[in-house]
Computed example of a mutant assay.
Amino acid sequence: MHEIINYEPAEAFGKELLGRLASVGIVQGQPFEPDARMQKIFEQAAQEGVAMSRVIAFDSRQPDAVVYPGLKWESPFIGNSSTFDPDGYFNLEARTTFHFTADGITPAMAMQMPEGKGSRYQTTYKDRNGNYLDGSKTYKLTMPPKVPVALFWAVTVYDPWTRSEIQSQPYPSISSQQEKPPVVNADGTIDIYFSNEKPKNVSDSNWIPTLPDQGFFVYIRYYGPLKPFNDKSWVPNDVVLVE
């Protein structure tokens, strides 16, 4: 932060934030040399801040987080606002949820775009029973027929510690536009499996490898969502544990 505030103009931060930083010795144009006591405080604060953010993001108490009542899919844009202030004040937990798990953001990612335009995002950290997803177990996500998108959809797996893509293969994702499309069932559904070892009789194009010693979470991206998605007449299934 000391490097950033000395690089950017003061107007980029505002007096409130600059005042908070000054209270811990970070002042624009002045050296930042915390003693051993302050270094210990900073280290503890960083650890506690990450722990708090992890709980806020992965076990949200925000009523608007859940997209479909009774299901585990959540919106990373709680309140459908990229500025996290739809009610006239900053929803700090909503903002933490997004920026702890993601990075870049634009208004179009959260706002209701015309049919077939823009993109929508949904995420889940838990299976249908409410248990956190475990890389040592096998799960299945069944996408209902005719995913309502004008462009394409994609399912991607992330590491809850780094919040980057899980390091199980170069691209831990399945997409409707991939070179070898996922196998479609006779009823039009598509089964996507998450597991450390590929289940028997499952195509490579329907399987995303996980790591056995860590958890994971899932994002679905819908590019060019259509009316059945927007009015919620089409609903994705929860991720289920395969016994």
Score class of each variant (00 low, 15 high):
His2Asn: 04
Ile5Asp: 12
Tyr7Lys: 08
Pro9Phe: 14
Pro9Gln: 13
Glu11Thr: 10
Arg20Val: 03
Gly25Met: 00
Ile26Gly: 02
Ile26Thr: 09
Ile26Tyr: 02
Gln30Asp: 05
Pro31Glu: 06
Phe32Thr: 10
Glu33Ala: 06
Pro34Gly: 02
Ala36Lys: 01
Met38Val: 05
Gln39Ile: 11
Lys40Asn: 12
Ile41Val: 14
Gln44Ser: 11
Gln44Ala: 10
Glu48Ile: 05
Val50Ser: 04
Arg54Gln: 12
Val55Lys: 14
Asp59Tyr: 06
Asp59Lys: 05
Arg61Tyr: 09
Asp64Leu: 04
Ala65Tyr: 13
Gly70Gln: 04
Lys72Gly: 09
Lys72Trp: 04
Trp73Val: 02
Ile78His: 02
Ile78Tyr: 03
Ser82Ile: 11
Thr83Gly: 02
Thr83Trp: 05
Asp85Cys: 07
Pro86Gly: 00
Pro86Glu: 02
Asp87Pro: 06
Tyr89Glu: 15
Phe90Met: 11
Leu92Thr: 02
Thr96Glu: 13
Thr96Cys: 01
Thr96Met: 06
Thr97Ala: 10
Phe98Ile: 00
Phe98Thr: 00
Ala102Lys: 09
Thr106Gly: 01
Ala108Met: 10
Ala110Arg: 05
Glu115Gly: 03
Lys117His: 11
Tyr125Val: 07
Tyr125Asp: 06
Lys126Pro: 07
Arg128Asn: 15
Arg128Lys: 12
Arg128Thr: 14
Gly130Trp: 08
Gly135Ala: 06
Ser136Asp: 10
Thr138Lys: 08
Thr138Glu: 07
Thr138Leu: 07
Thr138Gln: 10
Tyr139Glu: 06
Met143Arg: 13
Pro148Gln: 14
Ala150Met: 10
Trp153Lys: 15
Ala154Ser: 15
Val157Glu: 03
Thr162Gln: 03
Gln167Thr: 15
Ser168Trp: 03
Ile174Gln: 07
Ser176Ile: 04
Pro182Glu: 07
Val184Phe: 04
Ala186Leu: 06
Thr189Ile: 01
Ile190Phe: 02
Ile192Phe: 11
Tyr193Met: 08
Tyr193Ser: 01
Tyr193Pro: 10
Ser195Gly: 12
Val202Asn: 04
Ser203Val: 00
Ser203Arg: 12
Ser203Met: 04
Ser205Trp: 10
Ile208Tyr: 00
Ile208Ala: 03
Pro212Phe: 01
Pro212Leu: 05
Asp213Arg: 04
Phe216Trp: 02
Val218His: 00
Ile220Phe: 15
Tyr222Gly: 07
Pro228Ile: 00
Pro228Tyr: 08
Pro228Val: 00
Pro228Phe: 05
Phe229Asp: 12
Asp231Glu: 07
Asp231Val: 08
Ser233Cys: 08
Ser233Phe: 06
Ser233Tyr: 12
Trp234Lys: 09
Val235Phe: 12
Leu241Glu: 09
Leu241Asp: 09
Leu241Ser: 13
Glu243Leu: 11
